[in-house]
Amino acid sequence: MSDGGVLLDIRGLRVRFPMRGRGPVCAVNGVDLTLRKGESLGIVGESGCGKSVTFSSVMRLVQSPPAVLEGEILLDGRDVMRMSGAELRRMRGKEIAMIFQEPMTSLNPVMRVGKQIIETLRLHESLSEKQAEEKALEYFQMVEIPDARSRFWCYPHQLSGGLRQRVMIAMALICNPRVLLADEPTTALDVTIQAQILELLGRLRRKNDMSVVLITHDLCVIAQLAERVAVFYAGRVVEEASAGELFANPMHPYTMGLLRCVPTMRTVSRRLDMIEGNIPDPACLPAGCAFHPRCPFAADVCREQAPEKRFFGERRFAACHRAGEVG
């Protein structure tokens, strides 16, 4: 499915937030990522690892200044970082659409949901109010909102969390974007609703031949939807691989730890493996490899030198001095 060319290319992205009275918070520290046409890329990481900031930067939603952005973000060869306001408005929603984590807070509470989706549509396409309404209704049906016609004129508070998330998805898809960024799309939802939403996203991706970036901390969600996975830690990609390889044979100690510390339906032991210590503060990252204070395999070199990417095949790497030796 991912035989197409490169659609989105992030090169050496760095995002820093200057802080008054102390050093800057380095949220993203040199991220390189490529997204091909029709591909689904999963981004895993814990809070503060820079995954949301990276993709908010792609949408240019990180306000700069104060934030300092470096690097290139190429969408079909055009640099998003250099786009004018008008170009950005054309791009957002039309070429790249985003689903945010909280379906409760990202909809306007005083505007009917149908109106909100029509607004998005008419911003990008010259349609009459009536045509826009018809198209919006069609998308409401496509995301399987039951009784779509009456729900269309509801306010967000009248809808359940699952329905609100469907409205968000309909809104993101209505301009037929080429890239969909889904930031924790199911985190706020119950498992039965999560299963419905994940199935829906998978089906719509195949149908519209969209590229999807799925940002989440939940490895189970990644396993359901992503073909490729990039693992973030302290503002870097520490490992990237196809989903199958990553889950079967993780190379970076952080990935190994993550996979082992999640209880699953098959866990039988009475103790979980765990990663010791805490997530580092992005304002004062440890020297050398950012993971070394928590890493069971840390050697002297890890404390001194930041590891380079070590490739184990095309688009398969781990940024670890000891990758390949341990596991």
Binding site: V191, Q194, A195, C220, A223, A243, L259, V262, T264, M265
Partner: peptide
Amino acid sequence: AVPEPDPG
């Protein structure tokens, strides 16, 4: 409905 951390 609970997913497993396994792409297969």
